[in-house]
Design a protein around this nucleic acid. Structure first.
Lengths: 189, 189
DNA sequence: GCAAATTAATGATTTATTCAAG
DNA sequence: CTTGAATAAATCATTAATTTGC
């Protein structure tokens, strides 16, 4: 069951920089994860090559890391988030977990406290997600969990802004640690 | 902003049967809590509307209760279990800073085409830390036995396979009590 | 022993995300 | 790019435990 401490890093013996074996799998540090998560949460979904290199470079400060690790991390994280959402939607396709206005007609006292909050989705007229969803069903084994463990910081986080991209980088790093605070802006390339 | 008023809803009038008295908020009975807890432990995390209604209906046997109470209970319980788990899991990242092998590949990776499609799949074993983290939490959460099955069943029970749902529910109730041994199967609705 | 005051649990709301659709 | 759907996290608020003084 153990993750396999891996008697030691086998390193990718194969082709230079190519043959990644299961031996020396990247094991991100907490700081690295935090930075990546913050970047993701800040809107970064598919970093460009340049961005990946910068990120990787800066993250190497915290520990061993390669560009591809960054690339994979984003790809996996994005995919996993999607799957999670899909599964949840599936589970509640026809329903809506909610305090729901009791379908039970005879409710002597319709609580005034029952504000029309979020939950509310009576009809189950979901789109034709059925197909793919049904297939996903069998694939899902575990509930869900996200590595969103970032502390709640006052991110203005404007995903739309192009500036945010650069700002995001700095910010993420600042949040992660107070050490390097490097600049990953493309302009600084 | 408008904080002062607080909830400001001492809504009374009690629900149907209840009679006035403590109507500020639901006060679950021991039996109700036991059933809910067993359902949770059986893997039920986000009950559907139908499930909520059934649970609520059956739990009303023990005392006053509403659907939303069930909904909130699961929300809170799930969140607080996770929270508890998070507190404990401060131990991680044991090998964050390894001396890393001397021969750092001169060409970590010339990712010139990251955006096109797959980077380059070495072995296929590239997962991020999220997986490890998730597994850890899962194990800690259900140290007793495999709850994975229950969860799987839960997800499967969406629509195609109702037997699973039945199984989960029956299981929970059987374990929960010694009294009514109620049946929450959809078919029994 | 009881009751007011204080603390701990936990039910109920609000807020901030994320992905998806238009 | 904007809006919709649906949480999960964070927070608020009330009830039950308990502590303390008489």
């Amino acid at each position: 069951m153990d993750e396999g401490m891996s008697g030691g890093f086998c390193m990718k013996g194969g082709g230079g920089g190519g043959g990644g074996a299961k031996c020396g799998r990247w094991n991100p540090t907490a700081e690295q994860v935090k930075v990546l998560t913050d970047l993701f949460r800040s809107g970064l979904r598919t970093p460009s090559t340049d961005q990946i290199q910068k990120i990787s470079s800066q993250l190497s400060f915290y520990g061993k890391i390669e560009s591809k690790n960054v690339f994979y991390w984003f790809q996996n994280h994005k995919a996993r988030e999607r799957q999670k959402r899909r599964r949840i939607s599936l589970v509640r396709q026809l329903d809506s977990s909610l305090p729901l206005p009791p379908p039970t007609p005879p409710t002597p006292t319709p609580p005034t406290k029952l504000h029309d909050h979020q939950y509310y989705c009576p009809e189950g007229d979901h789109h034709e997600l059925a197909e793919r969803e049904r297939r996903l069903e069998t694939l899902q084994l575990f509930p869900l969990h996200s590595c969103e463990e970032a502390e709640k910081m006052q991110y203005w986080s404007t995903r739309n802004d192009r500036r945010s991209e650069t700002a995001v980088f700095s910010h993420a790093f600042v949040a992660a640690n107070d050490c390097p605070l490097l600049d990953l802006r493309l302009s600084s390339l």
